[in-house]
Design a protein around this nucleic acid. Structure first.
Lengths: 142, 142
DNA sequence: TATAATATAACCATATTGGTTATATTATAA
DNA sequence: TTATAATATAACCAATATGGTTATATTATA
């Protein structure tokens, strides 16, 4: 399952992207605006920083700033950055080849189902998300 | 995540479907043929029975027999029978409405991504699976 | 009547998840 | 120069889910 932490990370990036480019936000403010536990925000920001997506400056007047164009980050990337490799089934994490025919066919179906899912997530960027309006949701590629 | 138990259940049904119609198999035999712990097979058979998909007869010469046409059971049904409701995100399990705009848009994306995934699983029946050859996997609807 | 089978329920170790706590480091403003 | 407000890092923890085991009852045939 895609974890809540991954979801939070997406929301955090969307929050940053929803402000004028280069604007600095404190973790506390992000947490307040999006109702996420501050400690979790801090924890997640560390990972987003490692990915090179944000920059933090310390001290008073410090804060977090988006480091790259939010239209170049898609949801799949963010999820994988937080949760690691995505797999809808345990089978998709193992490298050992399948034993029997049916089982092996099943794996191919898992792969296909997962690809369909990931394709949707890849088609949505953080910028998309920060702009999208719930009433417009049908515009998402079908 | 789709659990290993759900995967096992699918494999068990495919094993039953791969034998001549109405043929009886023992749980032990199923477990042996598919390398699944016997106790797990027994546990899962109970759920498949509740779903009405199989019938068990007790005593020596007893065993398990497919109760319905395997072309009418799809993978999504089996998974939901074992794991319960499917959700790629915690968000999709909650009924409470979203608080903020971005978060709510996100939910719509989860829904869409999951629908794509489920659509693949719905398009594969137990019969399909028991017949399919790994080398033919590309025939799966694209 | 022994036995081979299904049926049912309780249990358990391990891993994951969502979140907390604690502490260190930095840089500004007074 | 020093208090303070911010990021940075790491360890920890309770609750739940997962994959599997154990134990016991029930049934029907040989």
């Amino acid at each position: 399952m895609i974890t809540k932490k991954a979801e939070y990370a997406i929301i955090i990036l969307a929050e940053l992207a929803s402000h004028p480019q280069g604007e600095i936000l404190t973790s506390k403010k992000i947490a307040q605006n999006r109702s996420i536990p501050v400690n979790l925000v801090v924890q997640l920001l560390a990972l987003l920083k490692d990915a090179g997506w944000i920059t933090g400056t310390r001290g008073p007047t410090g804060g977090i700033k988006l480091n790259i164009d939010p239209s170049t980050i898609n949801l799949r990337e963010v999820i994988e950055n937080i949760d690691g490799k995505i797999g809808i089934t345990r089978c998709l994490f193992s490298d050992t080849p399948c034993q029997d025919k049916t089982h092996c066919s099943l794996r191919a179906i898992w792969v296909k189902a997962q690809q369909k899912m990931l394709s949707v997530l890849e088609d949505v960027s953080i910028k998309n998300l920060s702009e999208i309006d719930p009433s417009e949701i049908n515009r998402i590629k079908d």
